[in-house]
């Protein structure tokens, strides 16, 4: 694998549209569940081990070469909230546009043709990682990092939280992030042998509920 390719893909400046999404942080800030660095850390930890693990495993499975259409259906089943399914497909479409320009590959063209309205973002991420010469574990790392990096950055904007404190939260989560990526890659390997049921389905009921509450707001800073 290329470490530099991993940095390009994981860079917040990679033009994939992620900055418009808070990963549930906007709803959690409004409800008072995130109000400082400690509660941000608790939020990120919970998201990492639920939606983050599930996304990381889907990304790793796509990078390992599992059928993206099968994985997209598994992603739908793991995302009860229609607001979150819409957000995941929008992010997937934006990532795919950037990926096709960055790492031209027939697999990305096939994905675009099969999902004109966008595939789930972790699935696109995995196919992109493969096109960039990266492996399942790299894809899992990027997905796991995005699951906490998005809310941390958003909270800086939403609460005026000190960016140094937000970076400290991410640094403290690093060992758990590595563990989640390793578990996700292992599950992807298992899914190659046993089918997609081997992929985790870790979920957070509150994140699904809050996403619907957020989608009902007339005015929002973030799309999700």
């Amino acid at each position: 694998m290329s470490l530099a390719a991993l940095l390009v893909l994981a860079d917040g400046r990679f033009p994939a549209g992620g900055h418009a999404h808070s990963g549930g942080a906007e709803a959690a800030c409004k409800a008072g569940r995130i109000h400082d660095a400690a509660t941000l850390e608790g939020f990120c930890r919970g998201r990492l081990h639920t939606a983050g693990l599930t996304a990381a495993a889907l990304a790793a499975a796509a990078a390992a070469g599992l059928d993206p259409a099968v994985l997209d259906a598994e992603a739908d089943a793991r995302t009860p909230s229609p607001a979150l399914r819409t957000a995941a497909r929008r992010l997937g479409r934006q990532l795919l546009r950037a990926a096709r320009a960055t790492w031209p590959d027939p697999a990305l063209e096939q994905l675009a043709a099969a999902f004109p309205r966008g595939a789930h973002q972790p699935v696109v991420l995995g196919v992109t990682a493969r096109a960039a010469g990266l492996g399942p574990r790299d894809a899992a790392h990027v997905a796991a990092y995005e699951s906490v990096g998005g809310p941390a950055t958003a909270t800086v904007r939403l609460l005026g939280l000190d960016p140094f404190e937000a970076s400290g939260v991410l640094a403290r989560l690093a060992p758990e992030l590595d563990a989640v990526a390793a578990r996700a890659a292992e599950a992807a390997h298992q899914a190659l042998l046993d089918g997609p049921e081997a992929l985790p389905a870790a979920s957070s009921p509150l994140l699904e509920i809050a996403a619907e509450v957020h989608a009902d707001w007339p005015v929002r800073l973030f799309a999700s």
């Binding site: 569940r33 608790g42 930890r45 081990h49």
Partner: peptide, 12 residues
């Protein structure tokens, strides 16, 4: 259970 299960992204 994995960390954060009772936190702001868990059962709160």
């Amino acid at each position: 259970a994995p960390g954060g299960w009772d936190g702001p992204a868990g059962l709160a």
